[in-house]
């Protein structure tokens, strides 16, 4: 099964945090990230993951009645936004849940597990 793991968190909680404090928080979470990458690599050596730039950098594009409208994101009022994504092939949902709960953001944000649609012909 191929899964996308979407990492949601409240990025505004990083606002107003000084450089030093931010560096300290990142360093604190480091061992968890290392554990995550070790476990992910064991479960699926081909796993890929990306961190997204802050949602405040986002642009939202819509085409309505043939007219293109570009606005600044994020487009929803929810506090939690997608901050990263993993694409991975795992044996089943239980394993996906186990891996997702190892992502540090699961402890303060949330992880969304989305199976990739299988139309039978995907490579």
């Amino acid at each position: 099964m191929r899964y996308a793991l979407l990492v949601y968190s409240d990025q505004s909680s990083w606002d107003g945090i000084g450089e030093e404090e931010a560096a300290r928080l990142r360093a604190e979470a480091m061992p968890q990230w290392i554990t995550l990458f070790e476990e992910m690599g064991k479960a699926d050596p081909d796993v890929v993951g990306y961190e997204l730039e802050s949602a405040s950098e986002a642009k939202v594009v819509r085409v309505r009645d043939g007219e293109r409208i570009v606005t600044d994101g994020p487009f929803a009022d929810t506090k939690e936004v997608v901050g990263g994504i993993f694409l991975t092939t795992l044996p089943d949902l239980d394993e996906a849940i186990r891996i997702a709960s190892l992502v540090p953001a699961a402890a303060y944000g949330s992880l969304e597990i989305r199976p990739l649609a299988d139309h039978g012909d995907a490579g």
Binding site: Y3, L90, D92, L93, D94, E95, A96, I113, P115, D118
Partner: peptide, 14 residues
Amino acid sequence: RAVGIPIRVPPAHL
């Protein structure tokens, strides 16, 4: 099938 629910007895830790 779509979300990959395993057909097995969960391992001891689950």
